Amino acid sequence: MIGYYVHHQGRGHLHRALAVQQALDEPVTVLSSLAPPTGHPGDWVHLDRDDLGIEPREPTAGGRLHWVPVGDDGLAARMQQLSAWLATARPRLLVSDVSVEVALLARLHGVPVVGVVLPGRRDDAAHLLGFDVADRLVAMWPPTATPAMLPGLPARVVRRVEAVGALSRQPVCEPAGAGGRRPGPPRVVVLGGAGGSAISAEALAAAMRSAPGWEWQVCGPPGPWVADPHALVCDADVVITHAGQNAVAEVAAARRPAVLVPQDRPHEEQRVSAAAIGAGGWPVLVEETFPSDGWAARLERAAALDGRRWASWCDGAAAQRFAAVLAGDPVGAPA
Rank of each mutant, 00 (worst) to 15 (best):
A19E: 11
L24F: 08
P27K: 05
V30L: 14
S32A: 13
A35S: 13
G39M: 09
H40L: 10
W44C: 02
R49E: 13
P59S: 06
G63V: 01
G74D: 08
A77C: 05
T88Q: 15
R90Y: 03
L93P: 03
S99V: 01
V100G: 04
L108E: 14
V111N: 10
G120S: 01
H127D: 13
L129G: 13
G130I: 12
G130Q: 12
P143T: 10
L153S: 10
R159P: 00
V164T: 13
G180I: 10
R182W: 04
V188D: 07
L191N: 10
G192H: 11
Q217G: 05
P229C: 12
H230N: 12
N246T: 02
A247H: 05
R255Y: 12
P257D: 14
A258Q: 14
Q263V: 05
H267I: 00
H267R: 03
E268C: 06
V272F: 13
S273D: 03
S273M: 12
P283C: 06
V284I: 05
T289R: 13
D293G: 10
A297W: 00
R298M: 13
E300G: 04
A304E: 12
G307N: 04
R308K: 05
R309M: 09
A311N: 10
A319F: 12
V331H: 04
